[in-house]
Nucleic acid binder design. Structure first.
Length: 946
RNA sequence: GCCCGAGUGGCGGAAUGGCAGACGCGACGGACUCAAAAUCCGUUGUCCGAAAGGGCAUGUGGGUUCGACUCCCACCUCGGGCACCA
C-alpha cells in the first residue's frame, strides 16, 4: 500500500524536535503522572467515591462510549475514533467547569471468548482477563481521561450479581395495561385477591395454587414459554430475532436458523412497544436511528376483522367458527373476495374439506421444506391451494373462498388475511394467477371499474364504489382515513371486529445454551415451576468447569435439541434450598443470559461501581442521570458508538431502563439522552482474480495499478477490518507518530458521523501541525521555551479571539475536524510571525489540550506551570475583539463579485452604498447605467442589480 | 418497493441563503544537504491570457430569490436500514 514509513530515524535532527519518538517519551511520562495523581478521578455526591464538597455546584456531564468486547486481537481503529471524540469532549467539558463522569468498562461475556476457549482449552475467564489487560494498555496509551476506579467488567461477579438482581426485578413484575407501566407482582396478587382485577380465566379465589402460579407467570415481564424460537444447531443455541439475518442465518457464524417450539426464557418487551416509540421524541438522536427503531418495532394501525366460516373438521362437527384477520385497510373490506391463511395456521386442518385434503397436505409439505427466508423472497411467483371452505364477508354477505398460501406469514398479525385484490398488489397477483374475483371498490382516476383492464392494484385516496350495505355507505367518503374510521365503527357495532394495533416487534428470547454468560437466578421445583432466588443468594456464580463447550450439531439438523453446558454439572444443578417453605430439593436453570444482558445497564454501574448494597445509590443516579427539567428524559449526556447497535443494544437497554424507572429504581426515563453515531473507518482493500483478499499493507501501488507479491490485484474501499485484510493497528500508529498525532488524525479526517477512508500518508499533516506548535514555543536545540518577547499585535490578538470563539463552537458541537483546522490556521499565523508571542502561548496550549493532551501538558509545564492543564479554564473570547475596525465588503453586480471596498465597522447603510457605487471597478462595470437596486447586507456584502 | 443519508479540485474535506474550495494530503518550484530523507519557504479548481483581467465550475434538469453548494420540485448515482409486515 501507499503507507509512508515512519519519520525516518533522525540522526541529525535537533534533539528537541517534536518527533514520533519524542512524543512517546512525553506521553509515557504523562500517563504515569495522571495515574499517580488520580487526575481524572471524579467525585460522586454520595457513596464510596462520594465527595459532596468536590462535586460542589458544578454542572455535571456524563459522557459515555459503547464499551468494547475484549477481543483477543485488541482494539481496532474504530475504537480510538469514538473514544478520542468522547475524550476530547470530556476534557473540554472539564475545562469549562463541568464535573465530568467518563470511564470505560468491558462487555466481556459472549460467544467469541467461549469459542476461543473451546479451541485452546483455556478457561474463558483467563483469556478474557488477559484480553482486558491488553486493551487497558491500549486505552491508556491513547491518553483517554478515564476515571479508572469506575471501570467494570460484565463478567465480574460483583457486576453480574446486579445483572441477576435486575433480571429478578423484571421477573417479579407485570405490565399494567391501564397505567401502561411495570408494577410489582405483589400488587397484581393484591388486585386479584381484592377482586379489583379478574384473572385471564376463572376466579382467583377458586383457583388452585398451580392455576394461580400459571396465571401469574402469564403476566410476568420475564417468563418461560414454549413458543417458536430461532434454533441454531450450528451454534448449539437459540438466538434472538435481532440476531438472525435477513436470509435466515445466525449473524454470528452464519449458520442456518430454524423456527422451533422450545421452552425458553422470554422478556415481554412488546408491552413497551408504544413507549419505546413515543419516548424517542424526548431523545436527541439522529432521525436515522429513530427511524430504524420505529421500523423495527413496526407499529401498524388498522383493525381486526372476524369472518364467519363453516368449519368442516372431522373432530367434532362445528356448525360455525371465526377466522380473525388483521388489516391496515378495513375500508376495503367490501373488496375482500377471498381469504388466505398461512399454511401452518391452526385452523387449516378444520377448514380443509375431504376432497381438498391431499392438495392441502401436499402444499404444506412443500412450504415446510422451505425455510423462512425462502418464503420471503419477493417477486417469487405466488403459490397456494384452496381449502374447500368458504367464509362470509361481514359487510356484503358474499361467500368467499378460503385459501392457504405461503405469502401469508404465521409470524405477523393473525397469520391470516382478508384478500382485497383491487387494493393490494400481492392479493392482485394471487387473484390473477388463480382466477379469483377482483372487485373494484374505489374509482381511481384514469381507470374504469372493470378490473379486467387493470394492470395492478390501486392504492390511495379515491372515491369509493361498490361500498355500501344497509347500514354502512362509504359513497360520499373522500379519504382512506375516513373510510377506515367508519368501517371500524361498523365492525364494533356489529361485533365483527375493532380498531387494532399490531407490531413487528416480538418478545425478546432471553436464554442461551452457552457457558460464558450470566446464570439465571432461578431454580425449579419438582413440578418444574420456576422460583426466583432471594437477593441474599446472589450472585449465582457461574460454576467452574473445563467442559465449557456447547453441544453443537450438524448446522442443517433442524430437529436436534439444545444441550446447555451447565446441564452437565449435576452437583451444581441439584441443590437443597430453603426458599421459605423449608428445605426442599430444586434444580437450577441451566441456561445463561444473552450477551446483551450486561450491556443493558452498565452505564448505571459506572455511577456507583463498588456499591454492595444497591446496583446504584439513588442519589448518584439522580445526580448523573436525572432529568434536569420536568418531562425530560434524563440519561447520559452524550453516548457515542457505532450505528450497528441501532436495534439491538439500544432497544434492549431502553427496555430494561424503563422497567427500572417504572419500579422506582431510577429517576431517568431513558438511559441515553444524546446519541451520536460515529462513522465507519474505511480503507483500501485489495483482492486477487479469485476474489481472495490480500494483506493491504503488503500491496505495492504504481500509477494506479496494484500488485501483491508480484500478482496483480484490484482495489476497493470497505470497512477497515480483518475480513478485508485492510486493518491498521492503532498501536502501530502510536509507535510511528505518538498518540496525540493519531488522535488528531482520526478527528481531522472529516465529520465524526461520516464514514471516512483511512490514508496513512495523510497522517503526517497533523503531525507537522503539532511539530510547528512545539517549535513556536520550544527551542528545538535546547528544549527551553523560546517565546517572542514582544506582545502580540492587534491582528494576532484579534485572530486569537476569533479562534477561541470558533474552537469553542466547534467543540460544543463535536465538530473536531473544523476545530483542528482553526487551530492550524492560528498556529500558521504564529509561524509567520517567527514564533509565539509570550501572551499567546497559554491560550494556544489550552486550546490544544483537549485534542492533544500529552503535548499540551508538556508545553504547559515548559511554560512554567506545575499543575495539570486538565482543569485550567478554557479561553474565553472577548466579544469586543471579534469586531474589526474596518470591514471588507465584496461588491457584487448581479450576483457576481466585481470589487471589494473597505468600510469602517458600523458604517450606515447609505455610506456603504455610496462607497460601493463610487468604486472605480463598479463604475467601469456599470458603464454609466443607473443601478435598478442596491442591496446592502450590514457587515456582509453589497449586491448591485444593474 | 419503502425509510434514512450523501453527491463540491487529483484525494480527504470547508462554507448562519451572502467573496465556493478553509484546513490537510498530494503535486510542482525553491532553501538546507556531497546526496537523500526529515524540515522550512512559495505556487496549486479549470480554461483563455505574457500580464492585467476574463470565461466556466458544487451529480442532472427546472423553480424561488437581488443573490442558491445551501431552500422547493423532478430525476440520476452511491451508501445504510427494512422488506410478500397484510
Amino acid at each position: 500500500m501507499d503507507a509512508t514509513g515512519p519519520p525516518s530515524p533522525v540522526t541529525d535532527a535537533p534533539p528537541f524536535r517534536y518527533t514520533g519518538a519524542l512524543a512517546q517519551v512525553i506521553e509515557a511520562r504523562w500517563h504515569d503522572r495522571w495515574d499517580a495523581d488520580g487526575t481524572f478521578d471524579t467525585p460522586n455526591p454520595a457513596g464510596p467515591v462520594g465527595d459532596a464538597a468536590a462535586v460542589g455546584g458544578r454542572p455535571k456531564k456524563f459522557i459515555l462510549d459503547m464499551f468494547p468486547y475484549p477481543s483477543g486481537s485488541g482494539l481496532h481503529m474504530g475504537h480510538p475514533l469514538g473514544y478520542t471524540a468522547t475524550d476530547i469532549y470530556a476534557r473540554y467539558q472539564r475545562m469549562t467547569g463541568h464535573n465530568v463522569l467518563y470511564t470505560m468498562g468491558f462487555d466481556a461475556f459472549g460467544l467469541p471468548a467461549e469459542q476461543f476457549a473451546v479451541q485452546t482449552g483455556q478457561h474463558p475467564a483467563i483469556t478474557t482477563n488477559q484480553n482486558i489487560a491488553n486493551i487497558r494498555t491500549q486505552l491508556r496509551r491513547l491518553g483517554l481521561s478515564h476515571d479508572l476506579r469506575r471501570s467494570i467488567s460484565t463478567t465480574d461477579p460483583g457486576y453480574y450479581r446486579w445483572t441477576q438482581w435486575i433480571f429478578l426485578q423484571i421477573f417479579n413484575s407485570w405490565f399494567d395495561p391501564e397505567l401502561k407501566e411495570a408494577r410489582r407482582i405483589d400488587e397484581l396478587i393484591a388486585e386479584f385477591e381484592a377482586g379489583a382485577r379478574r384473572p385471564t380465566s376463572g376466579h382467583w379465589a377458586a383457583m388452585s395454587t398451580a392455576d394461580r402460579r400459571r396465571e401469574l407467570d402469564g403476566w410476568r415481564l420475564a417468563y418461560v414459554s414454549d413458543a417458536p424460537v430461532n434454533w441454531c444447531p450450528g451454534l448449539g443455541t437459540v438466538v434472538a430475532n435481532e440476531e438472525v439475518t435477513a436470509d435466515g442465518r445466525s449473524d454470528r457464524g452464519n449458520f442456518p436458523v430454524f423456527k422451533r417450539n422450545m421452552r425458553q426464557w422470554m422478556m415481554r418487551i412488546t408491552t413497551y412497544a408504544d413507549r419505546l416509540i413515543d419516548d424517542l421524541e424526548l431523545l436527541d438522536w439522529s432521525d436515522a436511528i429513530k427511524a430504524m427503531q420505529r421500523n423495527w418495532i413496526g407499529r401498524s394501525e388498522g383493525a381486526t376483522v372476524h369472518f364467519d366460516v363453516s368449519l368442516v373438521g372431522d373432530a367434532s362437527p362445528q356448525p360455525a367458527g371465526r377466522i380473525t384477520v388483521f388489516t391496515t385497510r378495513p375500508d376495503t373490506l367490501f373488496g375482500a373476495t377471498f381469504m388466505v391463511l398461512a399454511p401452518e395456521h391452526p385452523l387449516v386442518d378444520q377448514l380443509t374439506t375431504a376432497d381438498r385434503a391431499d392438495a392441502v397436505a401436499a402444499y404444506r409439505r412443500t412450504t415446510e421444506a422451505k425455510k423462512d427466508f425462502d418464503r420471503q423472497d419477493e417477486g417469487r411467483e405466488k403459490t397456494g391451494v384452496f381449502t374447500g371452505s368458504y367464509a362470509t364477508n361481514p359487510l356484503n354477505g358474499a361467500n368467499i373462498p378460503v385459501w392457504i398460501a405461503d405469502y401469508v406469514l404465521m409470524g405477523y398479525g393473525t397469520g391470516a388475511i382478508m384478500a382485497v385484490p383491487c387494493g393490494d398488489q400481492r392479493d392482485f397477483e394471487f387473484a390473477r394467477k388463480f382466477g379469483l374475483d377482483i372487485v373494484a371498490i374505489q374509482q381511481p382516476p384514469d381507470r374504469t371499474l372493470d378490473t379486467a383492464t387493470w394492470a395492478d392494484a390501486f392504492v390511495g385516496d379515491a372515491p369509493y364504489a361498490n361500498s355500501a350495505n344497509d347500514s354502512l355507505d362509504l359513497g360520499g367518503v373522500a379519504t382512506v382515513a375516513e373510510g377506515t374510521h367508519l368501517t371500524n365503527e361498523w365492525l364494533m357495532a356489529h361485533d365483527h371486529g375493532e380498531a387494532t394495533i399490531t407490531y413487528k416487534l416480538r418478545d425478546w428470547l432471553f436464554s442461551r445454551q452457552r457457558y460464558w454468560g450470566e446464570p439465571f437466578p432461578i431454580v425449579y421445583d419438582g413440578d418444574d415451576n420456576p422460583h426466583s432466588l432471594p437477593d441474599s443468594m446472589l450472585p449465582v456464580m457461574l460454576p467452574e468447569t473445563d467442559q465449557f463447550a456447547p453441544r453443537t450439531f450438524d448446522p442443517d439438523d433442524a430437529m436436534s435439541n439444545p444441550e446447555s453446558p451447565l446441564d452437565r454439572l449435576g452437583e451444581w444443578v441439584h441443590v437443597e434450598l430453603d426458599l421459605g417453605d423449608g428445605a426442599q430439593l430444586y434444580h437450577r436453570d441451566t441456561n445463561v443470559m444473552p450477551q446483551w444482558a450486561g450491556s443493558c445497564w452498565y452505564e448505571l454501574r459506572y455511577l456507583d461501581p463498588t456499591n454492595e448494597n444497591d446496583f446504584v445509590d439513588p442519589a448518584n443516579e439522580q445526580y448523573w442521570m436525572g432529568p434536569r427539567t420536568p418531562g425530560a428524559s434524563g440519561g447520559v449526556d452524550l453516548y457515542v458508538g457505532g450505528v450497528e447497535h441501532a436495534v439491538l443494544h439500544l432497544l434492549y437497554a431502553r427496555f430494561w431502563h424503563k422497567v427500572l424507572f417504572d419500579l422506582g429504581h431510577v429517576s431517568s426515563k431513558e438511559p441515553f439522552h444524546r446519541l451520536f453515531n460515529q462513522g465507519y473507518i474505511l480503507a483500501a482493500a485489495f483482492h486477487d482474480e479469485r476474489g481472495m483478499y490480500v494483506e493491504a499493507s503488503e500491496v505495492q501501488g504504481r500509477d494506479g495499478a496494484y500488485t501483491h507479491e508480484g500478482v496483480s490485484v484490484s482495489r476497493e474501499y470497505g470497512k477497515m477490518g480483518k475480513s478485508l485484510k485492510n486493518a491498521v493497528d492503532p498501536d502501530e500508529m502510536c509507535n510511528l507518530y505518538g498518540a496525540d498525532t493519531l488522535r488528531l488524525y482520526l478527528m481531522s479526517m472529516g465529520p465524526l458521523d461520516a464514514s471516512r477512508p483511512w490514508e496513512s500518508k495523510d497522517v503526517v499533516g497533523v503531525h507537522r501541525f503539532l511539530q510547528r506548535v512545539w517549535r513556536n514555543i520550544v527551542d528545538e536545540d535546547t528544549g527551553e521555551p523560546r517565546l517572542l518577547a514582544e506582545p502580540a499585535g492587534a491582528e494576532t490578538v484579534r485572530l486569537l479571539h476569533h479562534t477561541i470563539a470558533g474552537v469553542r463552537a466547534e467543540l460544543d458541537n463535536l465538530r473536531f475536524n473544523t476545530a483542528i483546522a482553526k487551530l492550524i490556521e492560528f498556529n500558521n499565523h504564529l509561524t509567520k510571525l517567527g514564533g509565539c508571542p509570550a501572551d499567546m502561548a497559554d491560550p494556544l496550549v489550552k486550546m490544544v489540550a483537549p485534542l492533544a493532551p500529552h503535548a499540551a501538558e508538556e508545553l504547559w509545564a515548559k511554560l512554567g506551570h506545575s499543575e495539570t492543564i486538565t482543569y485550567e479554564p478554557f479561553p474565553v473570547a472577548d466579544p469586543a475583539m471579534l469586531v474589526a475596525d474596518e470591514v471588507e465588503y465584496p461588491v457584487q453586480i448581479n450576483g457576481k463579485v466585481r470589487s471589494h471596498i473597505l468600510v469602517a465597522a458600523g458604517a450606515p447603510h447609505d455610506a456603504v452604498q455610496a462607497l460601493a457605487l463610487a468604486d472605480h471597478k463598479v463604475q467601469a462595470a456599470l458603464a454609466g447605467s443607473t443601478p435598478k437596486k442596491v442591496i446592502v447586507i450590514p457587515g456582509r456584502m453589497v449586491n448591485i442589480v444593474a
